[in-house]
């Protein structure tokens, strides 16, 4: 018995050593991956600090920016236009993303390239395209103007520019999500009596929720950050990026820094809230 205890004790202690070694090894090897990552995150953090430190040292600029109705209006316009852009993308981009994920058509590659165009163009070029298309004499601007929708120096113009630059962000993320839903699930749904539309709503869409939300977040972030494309069609009403640029030119760095700090703060809160609220969306498993 004693011998058996000894053996068992020996085995236990050996396991303990082995576990320690196992814990030490992956952590150690991960350092090699963390170092370049920390450099990247460090750059972002430094960029935030160069904005935050001067603003927090002289908080009067921050207080006056927070109380400025023009700043409030710019935030409202920016966020509202961002939400409208995401709404439009959800309605038009979701079906397109699904069609692209399921189609085997030879011209699918051409459509994918077209979708990616706003991604590779300089923002001024994107702005020029939006302006030429939606100006009062533009191909889309003229007929829509007759319906009472004007784009030049108007809210719809901001939305149009935001939609244009955010298309690839939304469509690509959602297409990826649809691509991860196995076609077999859709086939089974149809064999069980679902039409293609009901199958889409009851199976495909719920299973792609995470990617749709992620695409919406990416698109919204891209939309509210757009400057060049927006000012070319609608300098007014001012979006927050236009206002920051305007205050930089007229009020100096301190004034624009304060507004930028407010924008960063708001975005951080909103992004964090979004991620927190959607952390369980599209995750289906009851394994404990």
């Amino acid at each position: 018995m004693a011998g058996s205890h000894e053996r068992s004790g020996g085995f236990m202690s050996f396991q303990g050593r082995s576990n320690q070694k196992r814990q030490w090894f992956p952590g150690h090897s991960l350092i090699a991956f963390w170092i370049p990552g920390i450099i990247l995150v460090g750059v972002i953090l430094l960029a935030l600090l160069v904005i935050a430190i001067p603003v927090l040292r002289n908080p009067e600029y921050l207080v006056s920016a927070a109380a400025d109705p023009a700043v409030f209006q710019a935030f409202l316009v920016t966020f509202l236009a961002g939400f409208c852009a995401v709404g439009i993308l959800a309605i038009t981009g979701t079906p397109l993303a699904y069609a692209l994920s399921r189609s085997e058509a030879p011209w699918k590659g051409l459509v994918e390239t077209l979708v990616d165009i706003p991604l590779v163009l300089p923002h001024t070029v994107a702005g020029l395209m939006v302006y030429l298309l939606f100006m009062s004499r533009g191909m889309l601007g003229a007929p829509l103007g007759e319906l009472g929708i004007t784009f030049e120096d108007a809210f719809p113009g901001i939305v149009a520019a935001m939609v244009f630059v955010a298309i690839p962000y939304y469509v690509n993320a959602v297409r990826e999500g649809f691509g991860r839903v196995p076609v077999q699930l859709e086939n089974v749904a149809r064999s069980l009596g679902a039409t293609r539309a009901r199958m889409f709503w009851s199976v495909t869409l719920p299973l792609a929720t995470r990617h749709i939300l992620y695409g919406a977040l990416l698109a919204w972030g891209r939309a509210i950050g757009e400057f060049a494309a927006v000012i070319m069609i609608a300098y007014f009403p001012m979006v927050i990026s236009t206002l920051i640029y305007y205050r930089f030119n007229t009020g100096g760095i301190a004034e624009s820094q304060a507004i930028a700090f407010l924008l960063i703060l708001l975005c951080l809160v909103l992004f964090f809230l979004f991620r927190f609220l959607t952390r369980h969306a599209g995750v289906y498993d009851d394994r404990s």
């Binding site: 077999q184 089974v188 149809r190 064999s191 679902a194 599209g282 289906y284």
Partner: peptide, 18 residues
Amino acid sequence: PEKRRIGFVYQDYSLFPH
């Protein structure tokens, strides 16, 4: 497919995870 009145079971069973 929805009109054919067939039941289909795949190798991985393709159960709806949601």
